[in-house]
Design a binder for these strands. Structure first.
Lengths: 242, 242
DNA sequence: CGATCGTTTGATCCGCATCAAGATAGGTGG
DNA sequence: CCACCTATCTTGATGCGGATCAAACGATCG
């Protein structure tokens, strides 16, 4: 279980946890490896575990009646996969979670989590914080989608990626396929592809899966990290021209 | 402060709170009345209070650079207005909150809330639950907006309203203006209006602000309460014909 | 009774989806 | 090393849905 301890300590959500708490957690959780394409859970499955990504990439998505997949989120190391299900009126998963890149996942019995939520003073606040940010992000994107063009949304997203992964703005590779990104942005691959061409005019060049912000001065204005789409937000003023 | 005690006890989030906790809460909060149109807070203001709606209706919205308002949520009695701001990296509000109908609002110092979150075992889980549901709802709507037509979305929403307010499906009045609803659904009033006409063909008649589900058998299929937009969801199958 | 706001309706336009056909790349086996 | 295959991506042509602009209509209120 040494691997477990190490994995736990590396997770922000369990940072600053005392040794005894870590030990308790470790003995009530397990770390597992999953290959690309593996389903962590599917819609309708019973909710059994609380899961946290330790390594790799996880796609969370829903399926429409016509069989089309709609990605709600792409999760990376440190992210909680189903924090919203710790306390839920439902006993079944409402989404699907699938491994994109080979992944390592920490799994904790959800009933155990519920039972011991109050024992760990630090845990509940961090879950709250995580959910809050997720909610804000979701609502921000809702606003974006009803006020910005596809091109602007993609520009915003690429900037966000660069910040999230701490990439070099001068040049980096997309961490996952364009199809997945398009799905994540709720747009068609075709639209996404066209969009990338338009971006070259504003200092964002994408060739293959390599991205470069060629005009950092311009591009700098695009950073929309915690933008709330207010009248003062320079990002949207800059992108308005796109 | 008697009004305060009564107001607190009526709120689901404080249900089952012991007398001593209620007393502590009461002495650290206040209930205030606000007239229609009053801003509870505006984007950029310092976050000072955690607020809960006791009576009336609150519109939470963001403002785009071009001055257009985008409604993120319409809150009613029992709803937390800014639960996501209890633990936030920001010290300023990212949204605006404005009174729609004359409202009564419970206000608790946010620093006090943070400080005493752990003292109330029941509080954190309930906040978690509230945020979880809000997040699910937000993501569900994101899926809806990228897979359903405006007509379908409105049908879904009207059903939801009917359930939320426990209205009689055979006939009820819209609880707020069509303009507000349109904004909430991220669509133009003109589009919303046209949409209502189309709904008559599927057993939902809206004349003035009066709504009636004239074909309950059909309409029953539309209820999309906790629908996850899965292949099995009868709602979307029924609405697919719209 | 005019003024203002909310709603409806009409005409038009634009953006993204859709359908479909090439292009490119990665992987496999001969 | 090349031919083949499949998955991913790009590009083109077209259509539809909802936004936009604008005007008429209705309701409420001083």
């Amino acid at each position: 279980m040494n691997q477990g301890i190490e994995a736990l300590k590396a997770l922000p959500i369990f940072a600053d946890f005392g040794g005894e708490n870590l030990a308790i957690l470790t003995s009530n959780s397990r770390v597992r490896q999953y290959p690309s394409g593996h389903y962590l859970y599917m819609h309708g499955d019973d909710i059994k575990n609380f899961k946290i990504v330790c390594r790799g990439t996880i796609q969370v998505f829903r399926e429409t009646p016509d069989g089309h997949e709609v990605t709600s989120d792409i999760l990376i190391a440190g992210d909680c996969i189903n924090a919203d299900e710790i306390i839920a009126r439902h006993t079944a998963h409402m989404t699907n979670a699938r491994v994109v890149d080979d992944a390592m996942v920490l799994e904790i019995s959800i009933s155990w989590m519920r039972l011991h939520l109050k024992d760990f003073d630090q845990l509940a606040p961090r879950l709250l914080q995580g959910l809050s940010e997720r909610l804000r992000e979701s609502q921000k994107e809702a606003v974006h989608r009803s006020t910005m063009s596809a091109t602007q949304i993609v520009a915003c997203y690429l900037q966000g990626l660069c910040v999230l992964y701490d990439f070099d703005p001068q040049g980096f590779d997309l961490p996952y396929s364009k199809t997945l990104i398009a799905s994540r942005l709720h747009m068609e691959p075709a639209t996404f592809s066209r969009t990338l061409q338009k971006l070259k005019g504003v200092g964002i060049s994408v060739t293959g899966n390599h991205v470069a912000f060629t005009n950092l001065h311009k591009a700098g204005h695009f950073v929309c990290d915690e933008c709330s789409v207010s009248a003062e937000c320079p990002t949207h003023q800059a992108l308005a021209a796109v």
